[in-house]
Design a protein around this nucleic acid. Structure first.
Length: 577
RNA sequence: CGGGGCGUGGCGCAGUCUGGUAGCGCACCUGCUUUGGGAGCAGGGGGUCGGAGGUUCGAAUCCUCUCGCCCCGACCA
């Protein structure tokens, strides 16, 4: 592509509202423009990068025997009511009505749509297994879109759904997809890791996330460097203390202290002159089976998903003030585990070895001091806190370290959540009718591009890994007014195109400085500079964007050089993006 | 949804407190010079100051409402 014909509006300054580097660079490089909050135009360069990821995803999904389909963006409400998610999904589901007042939504994900398609055709175990995928625009009305394509409301996603007659088969496919994803992100040139994750609103029995490691990532994960255990902090389990504490001695009974209006952990700690570590935080949750009290050390957070499992309930939600008063007999903000008889008390391992702690007194404006678990109250000990750096690994008790990541892929073993509610059934070998066992597997395409930039850039701009680069080569004649330079550049452009390389040819008649700055910003893996200086040697200067190393290469050797370079950096060269 | 902030040529901003001719840098157009890291000189075009209403002789500036956007927070692929 000749730059003079291209639509690549680069910016010297970055817009004030771009917070993270990938967002900034994508705007400055003329890849995207914002149309509304979380909604972006994809300009030619941005689309090319997206397409390169899509191509890799297609090739690998096809290789894994998945088949591509394309489901509608606008989905009838009926399907979502069948699965129960019309009510459950909440405000992220953008609902709309047609002229006949019929309800629809914009698909934020497509379990319902695909399950409907499959249930109408699949009758027998002989029709299974199936893995169907699409690369489609999704819409989620995010409460807070940000960071450009990283967290947009409208975004492109590859989503795949698999259907199986048996659990073993579904789990084989899960593993197949795990390997496929590993290949995909590897081919994209990303540094990533696969971690255990929560299933969230998608549901299902277990899941893994693929995280691109980056400091700007919105997800935190913990990693055990000793045994390799890694998980999203929303999910990560924490080992109990290695040695149970010796039974505490019966000391003074807890004493009440007056703490007028002091509610939060920090307020109370500051007021009493103790560290937040000395506090036991007690939160009252409501569940479908009534309220429960959850205790964690003052410096920890309760993980609601863990609490659900610990309490054996389906839903947990922070209780309102009235419920708290009924359950504890005291005011909200002054709850504590001592003397709580009406509700079950679940305490995190982090309170196990505390002594002389501070807790709420279940009485407005009062706290208890000198509270010792095991003496003054006897909770059930479970792992219910949110993991953080330093917590012991659930497998080997080594201290785990905290990292940040960008979630680019997520795979789920769904089980029968959708097939059961929507009646996607098949007849098994013994003639019994059973729900199809499902899995689902997503990749954020735009987010993968953003993550790549987040991981590959410098002060001057983007540094594309060759497999994602919109063009292989940035051809840069220093002076288009110089007859010889222009002619050689023209013919080199034609030659390289004939050889199958994609070339961005900066044929603009402007200062060389601008061209160099743009070349750095746009970040193609190789820059070929043509000038009177290089032509004296019948050569061009080839500069590698990533290393900055450059050398003079004879005109006759250029093609061979490119071939060597791209074969070296691309795992599987695909020369026509 | 709660808290904070911002809307002034395409982009980045000043001007608003204290009402009185709408400015700066970059970008853009024309000409000449320049051509290895965002060039120089000369000339030029472009703004309902987010929108509506109000106060005033007079509003970018003060008041009210409204729309949009950003940041922080609240169980998000």
């Amino acid at each position: 592509m000749r730059f003079t014909k291209a639509f690549i509006p680069t910016l010297k300054e970055s817009p004030a509202d771009a917070e993270v580097v990938s967002h900034r660079l994508m705007i400055r490089a003329g890849m995207i423009r914002k149309l509304a909050s979380g909604i972006y135009d994809l300009l030619p360069l941005g689309l090319k990068a997206i397409r390169r990821v899509e191509t890799i995803v297609r090739e690998e999904m096809d290789r894994a025997d998945a088949q591509e389909v394309l489901l509608p963006v606008v989905l009838p409400a009926g399907l979502w009511k069948e699965s129960g998610r019309w009510e459950l999904y909440g405000k992220e589901l953008l609902r709309l009505k047609d002229r006949g007042d019929r309800e629809f939504c914009l698909g934020p994900t497509h379990e319902e749509a695909i399950t409907d398609m499959v249930r109408r055709e699949v009758r027998s175990y002989r029709d299974l297994p199936l893995n169907l995928y699409q690369i489609q625009i999704k819409f989620r009305d995010e409460m807070r879109p940000r960071f450009g394509l990283m967290r947009a409301r409208e975004f492109i996603m590859k989503d795949a759904y698999s259907f199986h007659a048996t659990d073993e088969c579904a789990e084989r496919e899960y593993e197949n997809m795990r390997q496929t994803y590993t290949r995909i992100f590897h081919r994209c040139g990303l540094e990533f890791t696969c971690v255990e994750a929560e299933t969230g609103t998608i549901g299902g029995s277990f899941s893994h996330e693929f995280m691109v490691l980056a400091d700007t990532g919105e997800s935190s994960i913990v990693v055990c460097q000793a045994c390799g255990y890694s998980a999203n902090t929303e999910r990560a389990e924490i080992a109990p203390p290695r040695t149970p504490p010796a039974p505490a001695e019966k000391g003074e009974p807890p004493g009440e202290v007056h703490t007028p209006g002091k509610k939060g952990v920090d307020e109370v700690a500051a007021f009493l002159g103790v560290s937040p570590e000395q506090l036991i935080k007690t939160l009252i949750f409501t569940t479908e089976q009534g309220p429960v009290a959850a205790c964690v050390r003052g410096t920890e957070e309760v993980n609601p998903e863990k609490l659900k499992r610990a309490a054996g309930v389906e839903t947990v939600e922070l209780a309102d003030d009235r419920t708290i008063e009924e359950a504890t007999g005291g005011a909200a903000g002054f709850s504590g585990p001592v003397g709580l008889l009406k509700v079950p008390v679940i305490a995190d391992y982090s309170v196990m070895d505390m002594k002389d702690a501070v807790t709420g007194a279940n009485k407005r404006d009062y706290h208890l001091v000198g509270v010792t678990p095991g003496v003054d109250f006897n909770p059930t000990y479970m792992d219910i806190r949110v993991a953080k750096g330093g917590d012991p690994c659930p497998r080997c008790s080594t201290a785990m370290i905290l990292k940040r990541g960008i979630e680019v892929g997520h795979i789920f073993k769904l089980g029968v959540k959708y097939s059961e509610s929507m009646g996607a059934l098949f007849i098994d070998e013994s003639g019994r009718e059973r729900p199809i066992i499902m899995g689902c597997y997503g990749i954020g395409i735009g987010r993968t591009v953003a993550a790549s930039i987040e991981q590959n850039h410098d002060e001057a701009g983007i540094i594309w890994p060759a497999p994602l680069a919109p063009y292989h080569v940035h051809l840069l004649p220093v002076n288009m007014n110089d007859e010889k330079t222009r002619k050689k550049a023209d013919s080199l452009y034609e030659t390289l195109r004939m050889e199958g390389y994609s070339v961005l040819y900066d044929d603009r008649d402007i200062g060389a400085g601008i061209k160099f700055k743009d070349a750095d910003l746009l970040g193609m893996p190789l820059r070929l500079t043509v000038s009177g200086r290089t032509l004296k040697e019948d050569s061009v200067e080839i500069r590698k964007r990533r290393s900055g190393s450059q050398e003079l290469v004879h005109l006759d050797e250029v093609v061979a050089f490119l071939e060597r370079f791209l074969r070296g950096v691309e795992e599987r060269p695909s020369m026509n993006p």
